[in-house]
Each structure stands twice: as structure tokens, then as C-alpha cells.
Design a protein around this nucleic acid. Structure first.
Lengths: 149, 149
DNA sequence: CTTCCTGCAAAAGTTTTGCATTAAC
DNA sequence: GTTAATGCAAAACTTTTGCAGGAAG
């Protein structure tokens, strides 16, 4: 939230966009700021409601797609029908999610480093024999959030 | 699959449905058989195309919902917009998924038992301090499938 | 028999697209 | 100045729902 950190964030976003020949426009900067402020992945309805007047729906959908291509944001799936987005781990830090199976809400969660090592060991030792090239992992805990308990 | 195993499957499905006061009708039996035949979670368009004449769309959506409530099937999320379903682990076995980030296809995958133990240890030791009651985990590897490579 | 399930069709909700205007470089 | 992004409105697509007829217990 410091000015320096914000600046870094925007430089990283601009760099990512430039690599796919895209401009870092005002609307895209707003999206990055909204996602940076949240401590969890946001659904698109949540993003639309965040600002008054509302962000234009088609631009939000289009720009999140562009930002995803640029590696600036990441799409997160939950248990409900809404697509959620968060800043990519290059711009934040590696973490996992607590997914509520009742309401679909998603919170960030950082597991113990020992667990990370186990998972990464399994990923890298997974031979090409399975016909699948694993780039990364997705480890979420599914349960009931505070509000739904 | 063997006749005996099929029979067990249908008994388990019928039992699950009875517990939520639902009937094991012909349409629901077809869904269980289709999912049992697949080696991976199927999207609803895939399920609809599976049989000729096509299964009625509204019944498929409704019955998958009922079967999910009954604990017979499980909803699986990928990276695309389609909801996928597979038989619940009570009726099959515990496993994880290889998710293709390009096409959204999902394959089953069973990781080494050591990894399972690490993940479960982390889940059960996650204190109630985080305000989240974790029932289970979701561990997927994300990458590129054979077809998209 | 009585209740619940089915299947068609139409509605609802989320996401995508066409196009004239505006902003970025 | 040229090219690409924007924002409105409408379309496309997945999923849900209403209702008359039919199957299950």
C-alpha cells in the first residue's frame, strides 16, 4: 500500500502488457488497483460494484482477459458460477485458497513451506509418461467459511 | 466393467438418493453409467452428446444437482466456463486432476500417498483461528495436455 | 392413487461481440 | 495522425424454472 510498492506494481503490470503489445490504459490500471486492494479473488459482479459510477461491464470482461494474457492477473475458479480474478503471483506472492462450498467465497491462505515442498516434489517428479506437462499446482481447502458456519 | 461392480455402484447410488428422499429413476441411472464409463470428469455438453437421442438438457441439469445433493456425484471446476461432474469418491476412489490451461480438459490423477499425508496433515492442523472449517482438499496440477502440446 | 420426476419451451443470468467514438502512443 | 481501447447495446451461451403429462412407489 506504500507509494513505492504501488509504483512497482504498476511498472510490473505495464511491462507485462507491453510484452503482449498492449497498452496500460486507465481502465486497466483501475482493475489492477481494485485487485491489489482486495485480500481475496474478486468475482466480476464484485468488481463492477466496487466503483461508482460502475465500471463498464464489457471493458471489465475484455480487460481482465487481456490482463490474464499478459500474466498480470489470474483466473480463479470456485464452487459457484462466477469467475474470479486476483493479481498474478509474480506481482504478489505464492498462496492458496480457502473455498467455501456453500457461498463460493474465496479467501487467500498461505500453507506451511513443508507442504509446498511436498507438492512441488510431486509435480516435478511426475514423468512425461502421463502425457501431461504440469506447470504449476492448485491446492485449495474446501469447507465452510465464517459467514456460512 | 464387471457386472458385480456395476451392481455395487447402483446400490450405492440408490442408497445415497434414498437418504435425501429421492428416487433412483432411469434418467439418473443413465447419468451414473455415463460418468462411470468416463475416466475423467465430463462437462454437461459432453454428457448431452453422449447418447442418441440426446438426453434432455433440463433433466440432466436437474438430476446432476440431485445426485450432487445425494453425494453420488461431485462437481469439478476447471479453467473454462463449463461445469464438470464425476462420480463421488465414496463410489470410486480418492484422486486428483490434471487440468489443461488451454482447453480446460480434465484427466484423473492419483498422486503418491506421501503427498496425500502431507496435505491432510496441513488440513487437520489448520486451526479454527483462521475462521474456516476445512472439510477436504482440492489438489490439481495445471499445465498442457497431450492434445494441446 | 398420490407424489415426484420428466421434458419441452421459455426465462434468467453470465459472458461475448459489433460498432461508432475516444484515448493512447 | 494512426492505431488500438472504450462503452453502449444487443447477441450468444450456459444454466434455471414453469408447467402439463407420465412414471415410481
Amino acid at each position: 500500500m506504500a507509494t513505492a510498492a504501488d509504483s512497482e506494481l504498476h511498472v510490473a503490470a505495464a511491462t507485462g502488457l507491453r510484452q503482449v503489445d498492449q497498452r496500460y490504459t486507465a481502465g486497466r490500471r483501475v482493475l489492477v488497483e481494485v485487485l491489489d486492494t482486495a485480500s481475496r479473488p474478486l468475482s466480476i459482479p464484485e468488481i463492477l460494484k466496487q466503483r461508482r459510477p460502475r465500471l463498464p461491464q464489457s471493458s471489465v470482461y475484455r480487460n481482465l482477459g487481456v490482463l490474464e494474457q499478459a500474466g498480470v492477473v489470474r483466473r480463479v475458479v470456485s464452487t459457484d458460477e462466477f469467475t474470479r480474478y486476483e493479481l498474478a503471483e509474480d506481482l504478489t506472492s505464492h498462496h492458496h485458497h480457502l473455498v467455501c462450498s456453500r457461498c463460493g467465497n474465496v479467501e487467500d491462505f498461505t500453507p506451511p513451506p513443508e507442504l509446498e515442498r511436498s507438492v512441488e516434489r510431486a509435480r516435478t517428479s511426475m514423468g512425461a509418461g502421463v502425457g501431461f506437462n504440469a506447470d504449476t499446482h492448485r491446492l485449495d481447502f474446501i469447507g465452510t467459511c465464517r459467514d456460512c458456519a
